[in-house]
Protein backbone atom coordinates (compact mmCIF):
# COMPACT_ATOMS: atom_id res chain seq x y z
CA UNK A 1 0.00 0.00 0.00
CA UNK A 2 1.28 3.46 -0.77
CA UNK A 3 2.64 5.42 2.16
CA UNK A 4 0.37 8.31 1.46
CA UNK A 5 -2.82 8.72 -0.46
CA UNK A 6 -2.96 10.40 -3.80
CA UNK A 7 -3.44 14.09 -3.48
CA UNK A 8 -1.46 14.40 -0.25
CA UNK A 9 0.82 17.38 -0.62
CA UNK A 10 4.39 16.71 0.34
CA UNK A 11 7.53 18.76 -0.03
CA UNK A 12 8.54 18.89 -3.66
CA UNK A 13 11.22 16.38 -4.62
CA UNK A 14 14.60 17.96 -4.68
CA UNK A 15 15.53 19.08 -8.12
CA UNK A 16 18.73 17.33 -9.10
CA UNK A 17 20.90 19.69 -11.07
CA UNK A 18 19.38 22.44 -13.08
CA UNK A 19 19.45 25.98 -11.74
CA UNK A 20 16.45 26.79 -13.93
CA UNK A 21 13.22 25.74 -12.25
CA UNK A 22 11.06 27.54 -14.77
CA UNK A 23 10.56 26.42 -18.35
CA UNK A 24 13.04 27.50 -20.98
CA UNK A 25 12.46 30.62 -23.02
CA UNK A 26 10.80 29.70 -26.30
CA UNK A 27 13.47 30.01 -28.97
CA UNK A 28 11.56 31.70 -31.72
CA UNK A 29 13.28 33.12 -34.76
CA UNK A 30 13.27 36.44 -36.66
CA UNK A 31 9.48 36.63 -36.75
CA UNK A 32 9.06 36.25 -33.00
CA UNK A 33 11.85 38.65 -32.04
CA UNK A 34 10.64 41.29 -34.49
CA UNK A 35 7.22 40.98 -32.85
CA UNK A 36 8.75 41.31 -29.35
CA UNK A 37 10.69 44.43 -30.43
CA UNK A 38 7.59 45.82 -32.14
CA UNK A 39 5.59 45.40 -28.92
CA UNK A 40 8.27 46.93 -26.68
CA UNK A 41 8.84 49.91 -28.96
CA UNK A 42 5.08 50.34 -29.39
CA UNK A 43 4.44 50.50 -25.64
CA UNK A 44 7.43 52.82 -25.15
CA UNK A 45 6.16 55.18 -27.86
CA UNK A 46 2.71 55.14 -26.28
CA UNK A 47 4.09 56.33 -22.94
CA UNK A 48 6.16 58.98 -24.68
CA UNK A 49 3.07 60.28 -26.47
CA UNK A 50 1.15 60.34 -23.19
CA UNK A 51 3.80 62.54 -21.55
CA UNK A 52 4.17 64.58 -24.72
CA UNK A 53 0.46 65.40 -24.89
CA UNK A 54 0.49 66.34 -21.19
CA UNK A 55 3.47 68.69 -21.51
CA UNK A 56 2.12 70.27 -24.68
CA UNK A 57 -1.22 70.80 -22.95
CA UNK A 58 0.61 72.91 -20.35
CA UNK A 59 0.54 75.78 -22.85
CA UNK A 60 -3.15 76.05 -21.96
CA UNK A 61 -2.25 76.38 -18.28
CA UNK A 62 0.36 79.07 -18.74
CA UNK A 63 3.14 79.76 -21.24
CA UNK A 64 5.60 80.12 -18.33
CA UNK A 65 4.83 76.65 -16.98
CA UNK A 66 5.23 75.28 -20.49
CA UNK A 67 8.62 76.97 -20.88
CA UNK A 68 9.83 75.63 -17.52
CA UNK A 69 8.89 72.05 -18.40
CA UNK A 70 10.29 72.22 -21.93
CA UNK A 71 13.44 73.84 -20.47
CA UNK A 72 14.07 70.77 -18.32
CA UNK A 73 14.25 68.69 -21.50
CA UNK A 74 17.34 70.56 -22.70
CA UNK A 75 19.73 68.32 -20.80
CA UNK A 76 22.26 65.79 -22.12
CA UNK A 77 20.36 62.99 -20.40
CA UNK A 78 17.18 63.91 -22.26
CA UNK A 79 19.28 64.21 -25.42
CA UNK A 80 20.30 60.57 -25.04
CA UNK A 81 16.68 59.70 -24.31
CA UNK A 82 15.75 61.29 -27.62
CA UNK A 83 18.16 58.95 -29.40
CA UNK A 84 16.35 56.01 -27.79
CA UNK A 85 12.99 57.53 -28.74
CA UNK A 86 13.95 58.03 -32.37
CA UNK A 87 15.45 54.52 -32.44
CA UNK A 88 12.18 53.05 -31.17
CA UNK A 89 10.04 55.04 -33.60
CA UNK A 90 12.26 54.23 -36.60
CA UNK A 91 12.18 50.49 -35.84
CA UNK A 92 8.43 50.55 -35.22
CA UNK A 93 7.84 52.42 -38.48
CA UNK A 94 10.01 50.21 -40.71
CA UNK A 95 8.79 46.99 -39.09
CA UNK A 96 5.23 48.29 -39.41
CA UNK A 97 5.75 48.50 -43.18
CA UNK A 98 7.10 44.92 -43.07
CA UNK A 99 3.96 43.72 -41.26
CA UNK A 100 1.69 45.54 -43.74
CA UNK A 101 3.56 43.83 -46.59
CA UNK A 102 3.20 40.43 -44.87
CA UNK A 103 -0.55 40.98 -44.63
CA UNK A 104 -1.23 42.55 -48.02
CA UNK A 105 1.53 41.57 -50.45
CA UNK A 106 1.32 38.04 -51.85
CA UNK A 107 5.09 37.44 -51.44
CA UNK A 108 5.17 38.93 -47.95
CA UNK A 109 5.10 35.69 -46.00
CA UNK A 110 7.82 34.14 -48.15
CA UNK A 111 10.21 37.06 -47.75
CA UNK A 112 9.48 37.95 -44.12
CA UNK A 113 12.96 37.01 -42.85
CA UNK A 114 14.69 38.95 -45.61
CA UNK A 115 12.40 41.90 -44.90
CA UNK A 116 13.35 41.73 -41.21
CA UNK A 117 17.04 42.07 -42.07
CA UNK A 118 16.21 44.92 -44.46
CA UNK A 119 14.37 46.62 -41.56
CA UNK A 120 17.45 46.21 -39.36
CA UNK A 121 19.73 47.53 -42.12
CA UNK A 122 17.49 50.56 -42.75
CA UNK A 123 17.34 51.19 -39.00
CA UNK A 124 21.14 51.17 -38.73
CA UNK A 125 21.49 53.53 -41.73
CA UNK A 126 18.85 55.92 -40.34
CA UNK A 127 20.40 55.93 -36.89
CA UNK A 128 23.91 56.47 -38.33
CA UNK A 129 22.58 59.55 -40.06
CA UNK A 130 20.63 60.86 -37.09
CA UNK A 131 22.66 60.08 -33.98
CA UNK A 132 25.94 61.99 -34.63
CA UNK A 133 24.15 65.11 -35.84
CA UNK A 134 21.72 65.04 -32.94
CA UNK A 135 24.38 64.44 -30.30
CA UNK A 136 26.52 67.31 -31.68
CA UNK A 137 23.48 69.56 -31.25
CA UNK A 138 22.83 68.29 -27.73
CA UNK A 139 26.38 68.56 -26.42
CA UNK A 140 27.42 71.78 -28.20
CA UNK A 141 24.91 73.88 -26.23
Amino acid sequence: MPQQTAGTLTAAKKSTTSPRPAGTLYRGREGMWSWVLHRITGVAIFFFLLVHILDTALIRVSPEAYNVVIGTYQTPLMGLGEVALVGAIVFHAYNGIRIILIDFWAGGVKYQKLMFYIVIALWVITMLGFTPRHLINVFSH
Partner: peptide, 12 residues
Protein backbone atom coordinates in the same frame (compact mmCIF):
# COMPACT_ATOMS: atom_id res chain seq x y z
CA UNK B 1 4.10 14.71 -10.78
CA UNK B 2 0.84 16.33 -9.68
CA UNK B 3 0.63 14.02 -6.65
CA UNK B 4 4.04 15.01 -5.30
CA UNK B 5 5.32 18.20 -6.88
CA UNK B 6 3.96 21.65 -6.36
CA UNK B 7 6.11 23.03 -9.15
CA UNK B 8 7.71 21.32 -12.15
CA UNK B 9 11.39 20.48 -11.65
CA UNK B 10 14.28 19.66 -13.97
CA UNK B 11 15.82 16.22 -13.75
CA UNK B 12 18.87 15.06 -15.67
Amino acid sequence: DPEVDEEPRWQD
